[in-house]
């Protein structure tokens, strides 16, 4: 079971636009909410109203400053969840067979009934995408909302991940990244989508669209206004002539 499929028919995943993400955490909470109502054990919280609240989340949004040194730093909001890697080390290390990758679409899942909560898969994941539920003590991770995307109880348009549906800025896109003609592949292609930590050899499916260069960071020669002082009669001379033409 924990051997990876030779190949998958599709590679479903997310494309996350770092140029658009405003860091609002909507995806974080909607993910928590959906995964408390659907797949497997609900996501628990320890000490939820106490001095050290700590719960399981499958998606978390970091905020970074990127400092080019010679210009103002920019701020990038960075959502982090499972990348559904093609060469998922989290799957192959799993001793119980609980971790697996679906052959039909490449989604990496945990079969919670088999999980003994050893945590090794979380260690194996370079991206911190797996968290042990503090109450159920089984491994939790992004399911790519496998319980939404084909769910006949949901209207067709809602068969997308909860985080994608919720994201107010439209910074999250879902689709088949193995199909070069899919909208997500094309978007990633057009915007130079990157894989995280390629050196880890995990071959992630998800792509991140890097922030576009900002105009305070590129030396564009902006347009300049021609001033009217040189015109006869100055401002009011111009005014009269222009009004005539109206």
């Amino acid at each position: 079971m924990t051997s990876l499929p030779e190949r998958t028919e599709k590679s479903l995943g997310l494309v996350i636009d770092l140029d658009t993400c405003v860091g609002c955490h909507a995806c974080v909470v909607s993910c928590k909410e959906w995964n408390s109502a659907a797949y497997g054990a609900p996501l628990g919280d320890l000490d939820p109203y106490g001095a050290a609240p700590e719960g399981a989340f499958l998606n978390r949004v970091h905020t970074y400053e990127v400092d080019p040194g010679h210009q103002a730093p920019r701020v990038v909001h960075f959502p982090r969840s499972c990348l559904h890697c093609a060469d998922a080390p989290c799957v192959t290390v799993c001793p119980t067979g609980a971790s697996w990758k679906r052959a039909e679409d490449g989604i990496v899942l945990v079969n919670e009934d088999d999980c003994m909560g050893c945590g090794l898969c979380a260690w194996a994941c370079p991206y911190g995408a797996r968290e042990l539920d503090p109450i159920e003590n089984v491994m939790k991770k992004c399911t790519l909302c496998v319980d939404r995307i084909d769910n006949p109880h949901l209207p067709e348009e809602d068969r997308v991940p909860a985080c994608v549906r919720a994201c107010p800025a439209g910074a999250r896109h879902f689709g088949d990244l193995s199909d070069p003609s899919s909208a997500v592949s094309q978007l990633s292609e057009a915007r130079g989508g990157v894989a995280l930590m390629p050196e880890q050899g995990t071959a992630p499916v998800n792509r991140y669209l890097p922030p576009r260069p900002k105009s305070d960071q590129i030396d564009v020669l902006g347009p300049l206004l021609t001033q009217l002082e040189e015109e006869p009669g100055g401002f009011f001379g111009w005014l009269d002539r222009t009004l005539e033409r109206l």
């Binding site: 408390s36 054990a41 628990g44 919280d45 320890l46 939820p48 109203y49 106490g50 719960g55 109450i135």
Partner: peptide
């Protein structure tokens, strides 16, 4: 408040 919580 309770010290452990699972919603759902």
């Amino acid at each position: 408040a309770p010290s452990r919580h699972t919603f759902g």
